[in-house]
Nucleic acid binder design. Structure first.
Length: 205
DNA sequence: ATACCGATTAACT
DNA sequence: GTTAATCGGTATA
């Protein structure tokens, strides 16, 4: 296992990055509590030209300003007044691309994640749903702007992304339209949602 | 200053 | 399958 390099997030094709994030591990350390999960569902939001994106048309507000940061920054915002939704900003600074993490398979720190989600045991879909992802990993919208893979934050808090040393079999990846973006006209039909129904990892020597 | 609504979830029937 | 919960962001005035 190794940290994903900055260059991974700085590439221009957000759709490809969304696809490649499947099978990667996201790890958080908050208040000394370490939790992690393997990404199994993502959605790409393609910046100023994507009507489903918060940055459509180059819009900049206090909330969306973070989307214009350098790739590898966290964009977290509140949805329905309750849920923190975690996105990874990609591409160069000034290009507001982002990938929404919609689902993880719980890995380390399962007891902590159960506690955070108010559950006593996991089911097959405990980590599926963008609000649940943030809840389990302890990510809050106040973390928007957090730099990923940075280890010198106060309290040693970190959000990091690791390569598992394995790749998802492309045949196991399903692409389809994004959730809840009906307002986006023809862009609502774009196949920018990716998931791995069976998260089968292919071992690498 | 005010009103509307959402990249959702959990708890129901 | 249906629906209540819940509040910051954004547009409108």
């Amino acid at each position: 296992m190794s940290l994903l390099p900055c260059s991974f997030f700085l590439r221009p094709d957000v759709v490809q990055i969304a696809r490649e994030l499947l099978g990667k591990k996201i790890i958080t350390r908050f208040a000394g509590e370490i939790t992690s999960g393997v990404i199994c569902e993502t959605e790409a939001y393609a910046g100023v030209t994507d009507r489903a994106s918060h940055a459509y048309g180059g819009r900049r507000t206090a909330r969306t300003e973070v989307m214009y940061a350098l790739g590898g920054t966290a964009y977290v915002y509140l949805c329905y007044g309750i849920h923190s939704l975690f996105n990874i900003v990609t591409s160069d600074a000034g290009t507001p691309h982002a990938v929404l993490i919609r689902g993880i398979i719980p890995a380390e720190g399962t007891e902590i994640m159960l506690r955070r989600s108010g559950k006593t045991k996991f089911t097959h879909d405990s980590g599926i749903g963008p609000g649940k992802v943030s809840k389990m990993l302890g990510i809050h919208y106040s973390h928007s702007g957090f730099i990923l893979n940075q280890f010198d934050n106060p309290g040693n808090n970190t959000i990091s992304l690791e390569d598992m040393g394995t790749d998802i079999d492309p045949d196991k990846i399903t692409a389809g339209p994004r959730v809840g973006v009906d307002y986006a006209g023809t862009d609502a039909l774009l196949p920018y949602r990716f998931m791995v129904q069976e998260l089968i990892l292919h071992s690498k020597p």
